[in-house]
Design a protein around this nucleic acid. Structure first.
Lengths: 251, 251
DNA sequence: CGATATCTTGATAAGCATCAATGTGAGTGG
DNA sequence: CCACTCACATTGATGCTTATCAAGATATCG
């Protein structure tokens, strides 16, 4: 992944250790990013920042897993995202963090000063494009999640989640995944309760779609069945024809 | 940050007729946006583009209401957003539209050529900042919606929706709103069925929180009660203290 | 003013939440 | 090294919220 070395890639040899953020950027841009970033670490369950805080620095996850969450006043919780290595936290531009970021596992991060980062953004068109693309991808992911939360059943939610984790952490074709988050995080991410997540996983196991080796290691035995449950068109062909038919006014 | 009408605002008097997109931008930037845009109109229920289409032009809603929706293969539908005047559609940067855009009512739009728009984006730092802020706001809205879909009850969803519409279309303190979309759109936006939306509105009416003058005109009689139902902290004080207490590891 | 879509209301059922125990694994200290 | 403990995961029994199916009321448009 880190090593899609194409002709256009101009990272230095030492870039193997560089933040993923630099990947495929011009050499001078990535050098300046390197200068800007400082290491930061976070132990499991620790918070990086809280919803409502003044937006401070920007963080890149280097290793570990971070959860982004929002709360209702009475304590109900929703995870609005997970950050894997290479993802950024704290990009908000309106002055205040809109979600809380907490470490799920012990994490290594890189910290960037917001002002410096934004200055660099003004000067580096390639970084700018990268950031636009990143925000755009996040928005797409958010919409996927809205569709899931609004319209999928518990089975479909869990199947989608397992496939999503596989895609994010291993390749698209991986069949063994590690769930670094607990059932409560999965539940709050999918809009379910812990019990329903557990029951659903058990059912998928009973039906032979997956098997568990420990509560946090899942083997995807029947991808086809999981994908037809998830049925969000991510793994399947990108819905081709009969598009004109989808118009709503019925005739 | 960039939206407070300060001394730096340099819109021409004629800017009153200019697309909202130009608001508060430098004179030359807004002039160039004006040159770029061409009028476009759409009648109710017509589609602007479909999910999966190659991304073509970018549209700004001038008047009317547009819905953004995603579908599951079996036809289940989720609205991932509404576009009000001033909002943009089709900003995706990955080459393909990720949602379908349809006119709810008759609409007037402005159409921008994507290539030209992106070129202008490279040249106009103020427009660039505006676009970053816009994407950032959309992401925040998406997260609000995820919290709503994942964790709110039907009552809370509908109350949140009514207040949101009031905020978007009138001022924050307005007490009469017009619902230009049908119950089906509201249902698909809130992850409910038409029947549940209807019943919930009826209940709010019976309880004296709102009253209806026609199915599409709502009067908010008891904002306080609606807000405490919605309880997302949008209308209330921006959750101040006791933030350190929200840390999870229980000691 | 009639035809048709949309909205409302009612009866019933399903899916998921809730409450309550039991099982399991990781970390701790004897 | 093993028992102990605590958090976490699983399973079970039950009930509530919301979906579904089915009429009926109202609005909208030609």
């Amino acid at each position: 992944m880190l090593t899609h070395a194409t002709a256009t890639t101009r990272c230095t040899p030492s870039a193997a250790m560089a933040p993923v953020l630099c990947r495929d950027l011009h050499e001078d841009t990535s050098e300046r990013i390197l200068e800007l970033g400082t290491p930061h670490s976070l132990s499991a369950q620790e918070a990086l920042f809280w919803e409502g805080d003044d937006a401070g620095d920007i963080f890149e996850v280097v290793e570990g897993l971070v959860r982004l969450l929002r709360l209702l006043p009475d304590g109900r919780r929703a995870l609005v995202g997970f950050l894997f290595p290479g993802d950024l936290a704290g990009l908000c531009l309106n002055g205040r963090h809109v979600y809380t970021a907490e470490a799920v596992t012990d994490c290594r991060l890189r910290r960037y000063n917001r002002r410096q980062f934004q200055a660099l953004l003004e000067q580096a068109p390639d970084l700018r494009q990268r950031m636009f693309a990143l925000l755009s991808d996040e928005l797409t992911a958010a919409q996927d999640q809205m569709l899931l939360l609004a319209r999928k059943t518990a089975d479909e939610k869990v199947a989608s989640f397992l496939l999503w984790i596989a895609r994010k952490t291993r390749g698209a074709r991986a069949s063994a995944i590690e769930l670094r988050m607990g059932r409560a995080d999965i539940a709050d991410f999918l809009g379910l309760t812990v019990e329903t997540v557990s029951r659903t996983i058990s059912r998928l196991k009973r039906d032979g779609l997956i098997c568990l080796t420990g509560a946090h290691e899942v083997r995807l035995l029947r991808r086809d069945a999981l994908e037809s449950l998830a049925e969000d068109g991510h793994a399947v062909a990108p819905h081709p024809v009969e598009r004109r038919n989808r118009a709503r006014w019925p005739i």
